[in-house]
Design a protein around this nucleic acid. Structure first.
Length: 373
RNA sequence: UCCUCGGUGGCGCAAUCGGCAGCGCGGGUGGCUGUUAACCACUAGGUUCGAGGUUCGAGUCCUCGCCGAGGAG
């Protein structure tokens, strides 16, 4: 059911163009996946997501487990049916919430005790529970339950989290094996902070367990870009060529271009939607904030070269007016543009890989963004 | 005409017994990377209606005036 096929590889960088087959359709890689934590990509409807080119979205185990609950979504016929999205869905395991809700939990080798951020109630999330919730949701790609550590960290703390992540990865794999779950793919997650030997070891031991794809976690959590790229280099070298690689939580355009050059096939990030709701816009020539006085009488689109709904139909001055007036359409148009930009950036990258010119494409795109190569 | 209440940043308001003039919104700017986030942070902005007076010291007390709201006639 789940297949990954490489179509073309860049002769200069490690970039590859591929195809992931899932029960809900084919995903062309490299791909950017919009984040829909609560069974909705904030401010966007499924037809709008389709229109801007998205063919896979992310959702979240922890949030849906707390509300509305896995049983309810299973009764609705699964997450696809519940939220009206007919294309593939990847669900994160709740591992990131171990990190982002750190003040509300305590970790043991068995699992994580959480206080709900909604009502304070106590819950115990284990690898098995995360798997069972994701089974009930019916996502196409399931993520292992992992432990993401805060950077900066120490070698010992990172190693402990890595060992726990590996132990949990084995339990997640085992859960799938005993339940004979075949419709859903399971991805392992590489941890190890910024320690090359830990990244390498974690990758190798995950491959020994055997997964349908491999994610790189624990990055874009405060380290510099160079540190992130160094961790990517070592991790990608250690991962098998014939499985998809997913860089979790990364969404700045320059990070995507550099990630692709290092062999990453999949990305997700809240940045386009969150920053969009906050008036921050991504363009091929860098970022800007629509709130600024500079755009008060600017009757040109967000990005002249952009073909998104917001750029084709509206001006900066109008969207700025909507934003300052507290109008919900501002958040929608800015989210729409940002998502379109990242989804299309990956589509363009894919084309250039197939044409054999990714290195040049990346160089030009990075220069345009004003980013150092 | 008289009585009562009020006048403080762009707007709405606070300031104990007379003791460093603050808050919210709005404005300006910055931040946001597997979403606790249509969020968060920083910043600018004052002749406290005017003129006198009492006091070491007045947004605060006294006198007169101006403006606004309500009431009486």
């Amino acid at each position: 059911m789940f297949k990954f096929r490489i179509i073309a590889e860049c002769p200069v960088t490690g970039a590859r163009a591929g195809e992931i087959t899932t029960p809900h359709g084919i995903i062309e890689t490299p791909v950017f996946m919009p984040v829909g934590t609560q069974a909705t990509v904030k401010a966007m409807s499924p037809p709008e997501l389709e229109e801007l080119g998205a063919r896979i979205i992310l959702s979240n185990t922890y949030h849906l487990y707390l509300r509305p609950g896995a049983e309810l979504i299973e009764s609705a016929g699964g997450l696809h049916s519940f939220m009206g999205w007919r294309h593939p869905i990847l669900t994160d395991s709740g591992g990131f919430q171990v990190f982002s809700l750190s003040s509300l939990r305590s970790i043991t080798d068995d699992g994580v005790e959480f206080r709900s951020h909604i009502d304070g109630s106590k819950h115990f999330m284990t690898p098995e529970l995360s798997m069972d919730v994701q089974r009930a949701l019916g996502s196409d790609i399931v993520m292992c339950f992992d432990e993401c550590v805060k950077l900066p960290t120490t070698e010992d703390i990172s190693r402990a989290a890595m060992e726990r992540t590996l132990s949990w990865a084995g339990r997640c794999r085992e859960f799938f094996r005993t339940r004979e779950i075949e419709r859903q793919a399971l991805f392992g997650i590489v941890q190890g902070a910024l320690y090359p030997d830990q990244r390498e070891e974690c990758s190798r031991r995950l491959v020994d367990i055997g997964f349908d794809g491999y994610a790189i976690g624990g990055l874009s959590v405060g380290e510099t870009h160079d540190e992130m790229y160094a961790a990517l280099d070592v991790t990608n070298r250690a991962l098998p060529r014939d499985k998809p690689r997913y860089l979790m939580g990364v969404g700045m355009p320059e990070n995507l271009l550099e990630g692709v050059a290092r062999g990453i096939d999949m990305f997700d990030c809240v940045l386009p939607t969150r920053n969009g709701r906050n008036g921050n816009l991504l363009t091929r020539t860098g970022r800007f904030n629509i709130k600024n006085t500079l755009y008060e009488r600017d009757f040109t689109p967000i990005d002249e070269s952009c073909g998104c709904y917001a750029c084709v139909n509206f001006t900066k001055a109008y969207i700025r007016h909507l934003y300052r007036s507290g109008e919900i359409l501002a958040a929608r148009l800015c989210s729409w543009h940002n998502l379109y930009f990242l989804v299309q950036l990956m589509k363009s990258a894919r084309r250039s890989i197939i044409e054999g010119v990714y290195d040049e494409f990346r160089r030009d795109a990075m220069a345009s963004l004003g980013a150092a190569l």
